[in-house]
Design a protein around this nucleic acid. Structure first.
Lengths: 247, 247
DNA sequence: CGTTAACTTGACGGCCCTCAAGAGAGGTGG
DNA sequence: CCACCTCTCTTGAGGGCCGTCAAGTTAACG
């Protein structure tokens, strides 16, 4: 993994390298571009905007200009209903793209908040779109990324609509574990960037329920919880919870 | 509204007209194309595939080649989890596009089942994509449509994660009402194409709960239920349920 | 007219929410 | 470096919403 200093002056090329370095499936940039196409991408992407923990990258309603790729850090996206209920719609880590929900209305549809000090690349959408016309790989890549977001959302709907609290938590932990592993971090020991309340909002549960179930998992020897530090003791045990469903 | 016979031999141009005729926001085709561009679209879109009620348009796992636009009829999309749980991820009516979740993996991620005898246009994705390179309006329209799907899904996540059963049903009925109205049908009286179980699957409820709450709404004088025929008596009453939330 | 799928309604129980109190962690200023 | 404050988390007790199970009714279709 590159250190924060190393990637301070990152280019599109380096960003791609960074991604492939840690073997991300979830690439923010496509592979297979020619050096010239790479250079063109480089000239479009705006580098290194820093967002402090707790700050918003954008808010619902703000005019949409750019997609954002997380370079370093951790974000949550959330929608707020008219009557003030918050639903966390996703957590985003390095290499992931945010803001695709804003294209349809030219305004952001959700808030994006940094859960730790973070750094993002800005991808001005108009220019990306224009470039994509001449670079089919890029064009197709954008469709793919948006399609993947849709698939992800459908799976969350499955989780929210069909699963019990324990199953949701197990699925959540396994998903985080996998994504950290893809980035070269430990799959068995990681730090939660979000509060119990934010986990609960994402999973359709109350924070007390999240806390209780994490404790229960610990009692059962599936994980070790120390504050926001999670250690997965039995990966298979968590998986078993997912497949042990009533019907 | 055009009759089934009138739109049997529909072209892209006619399809667009049909859409604008019934003042659809949810266009399957963009506006602003030149006659020549229109002709090119026409030559790509495959006409009139008929799907009988209960039949699948595509199934999860099948290779992806085309997006599909509903011309006539009504569909449900659903994902099935590994252990056999079904989650209905959406209902689709005339003018709406299906299959965007398949782009990322070149294979369909969900089943699409006709809930009444239906007719779809096929939009071969490779060719649409190629055409889109030369027709910026089309290109942008595709991004917009996928973005809208993401926004929709986020709102369903809000519904599943935050709302009580009554609120979910009220939101569901109001949403259907609005979509029928956009198509020139009555906003206050319409026929449900899906079973209570399918409504429940979409809303994260059991079919008995759906049935009970529809009965309750009827007792309260909000709607009239006669089998699958719904009459909305008090639009405002349903809206009030949505905004009367605990916090 | 018979058969099956879909729907309704009731009784009951369990899962998760609500409310509450206290403990713990992290940051700030003295 | 410690005291203090605030945010976060944990744990318990109780209650309500909705799921489960069951039986009966209605609608749909051949």
């Amino acid at each position: 993994m590159l250190s924060p200093i190393q990637i301070r002056e990152v280019s599109a090329r380096q960003l791609r390298q960074m991604c492939s370095t840690c073997s991300l499936r979830e690439l923010c940039l496509p592979v297979g571009l020619s050096p010239e196409e790479m250079r063109q991408l480089d000239s479009i992407i705006c580098q290194g905007r820093h967002i402090k923990r707790g700050e918003g990258l954008y808010r619902a309603g703000e005019p949409f200009r750019s997609l954002h790729a997380v370079r370093v850090g951790f974000f949550k996206s959330s929608v707020i209903s008219e009557d003030g209920r918050e639903q966390v719609t996703g957590f985003h880590m390095s290499g992931e793209l945010m803001g695709m929900d804003a294209i349809c209305s030219d305004a952001h549809a959700c808030d994006a908040i940094a859960l730790e000090d973070s750094e993002v690349c800005e991808l001005p959408f108009d220019e990306i779109q224009t470039l994509a016309r001449n670079v089919p790989i890029l064009q197709h890549h954008l469709y793919k990324i948006m399609s993947r977001e849709i698939v992800r959302d459908h799976n969350v709907m499955l989780l929210l609509g069909n699963m019990k609290a324990e199953e949701r938590l197990a699925a959540f932990l396994l998903n985080l574990s996998q994504r950290f592993a893809l980035r070269g971090y430990s799959a068995t020991s990681f730090h939660l960037r979000m509060t119990r309340e934010e986990i609960g909002s994402y999973l359709g549960l109350k924070l007390e329920t999240v806390s209780r179930i994490l404790s229960r998992f610990q009692e059962q020897g599936l994980i070790k919880v120390q504050n926001r530090l999670i250690e997965i003791i039995s990966h298979d045990g968590l998986k078993a919870i997912l497949s042990t469903n009533p019907r």
